[in-house]
């Protein structure tokens, strides 16, 4: 099939898509957007987290045909033209990135959380990121990063 949908605000098209392949495969292999990572292909790790019509989802569990005419936001859409988004900066500054494999999924999940809940409690952060596995950091720095991003976003909103 010819697949047409919106990715990060721009119209995207791919030809000869097998309808049963995953959105993750379409993004990485057909559209050259390898930010969303492929680790488990079964919804367990969260490294492929994207937003589909504004809702956080595992791209590996969405069938390509299901995104026809829909809107997808990936980690590639977070940064501005020449600067990182507040969540991305906070991950760098807090030391929440080691090998970096889990980072794209966590960034999308954290961004999604802060949009819904600008000043989350620790338990809200833990709950929201429970679907994203990290084998390196032990999560504490990730917690720091999300708190930092929340503070900075609140500051930006005030100024």
């Amino acid at each position: 099939m010819r697949l047409k949908f919106t990715v990060n605000g721009r119209q995207a098209e791919a030809d000869d898509v097998w309808e049963g392949e995953s959105l993750l495969y379409v993004l990485r292999e057909r559209l050259g957007l390898p930010g969303s990572k492929n680790a488990c292909e079964q919804g367990e790790c969260g490294s492929c987290t994207v937003r589909l019509d504004g809702v956080a989802a595992c791209a590996c569990l969405v069938a390509a045909g299901q995104v026809q005419d829909r809107e997808v936001d990936t980690v590639e859409g977070l940064a501005g033209e020449d600067e990182l988004d507040a969540v991305q900066r906070a991950f760098v500054d807090a030391g929440a990135v080691q090998c970096g494999f889990c980072t794209p999924g966590l960034l999308v999940a954290a961004d999604d959380l802060l949009e819904r809940c600008p000043s989350p409690s620790d338990s809200e952060i833990r709950e929201s990121l429970a679907g994203n596995l990290c084998r390196c950091t032990g999560y504490e720095k990730i917690m720091d990063a999300v708190r930092l991003a929340a503070d900075r976003r609140a500051e930006e909103a005030r100024s």
Partner: peptide, 9 residues
């Protein structure tokens, strides 16, 4: 059930 991503879908 699962995780937020799974509960969303």
């Amino acid at each position: 059930v699962g995780s937020p991503q799974i509960r969303n879908r």
